[in-house]
């Protein structure tokens, strides 16, 4: 029984780590702010849920699992709000998304509105 739980933890944590690395890679690779937001959303949702699930397998039915559940719920409730605030602030400030697809990471950066 312990072995099955350990294997479950291994698998979930490995999947979570994989998605975290993909998130970091996407943050570096995507061409403009709005596409990077999508990449950041991956770490907020599936990676958090699956890593906390893997940790909960180790602790069993205790208050620790409840705390892990609270972490997931808080992140799931707050992350879209923060993302929306960020996207809306950038949009209102006049940062236009690039809609022409992907032309390589070394393209010119998106319109720079640092002083807005």
């Amino acid at each position: 029984m312990d072995l099955i739980l350990d294997i479950g933890t291994w698998i979930s944590l490995l999947i979570g780590s994989f998605f975290l690395l993909v998130t970091g890679f996407g943050l570096l690779r995507f061409p403009d702010l709005y596409t990077r937001i999508h990449a950041g959303g991956m770490a907020d949702t599936l990676a958090t849920a699956i890593i906390c699930f893997g940790l909960a397998l180790q602790s069993g039915f205790t208050l620790i699992s409840v705390k892990l559940l609270f972490v997931v719920i808080f992140v799931f409730l707050t992350s879209p709000t923060a993302t929306y605030a960020l996207a809306q602030a950038a949009f209102v400030a006049g940062l236009k998304p690039r809609l022409d697809g992907f032309e390589g990471p070394s393209e010119k950066p998106a319109t720079n509105n640092d002083d807005d």
């Binding site: 999508h38 996207a87 209102v92």
Partner: peptide, 26 residues
């Protein structure tokens, strides 16, 4: 609804005004 759109990666709510939702899709 808007938060659900944002929560699924690949679509982000950029603006919500009255009953129009502006969505950025990947």
């Amino acid at each position: 609804y808007a938060n659900s759109i944002t929560l699924t990666p690949g679509t982000v709510t950029v603006d919500l005004h009255e009953d129009t939702i502006l969505v950025h899709g990947l």
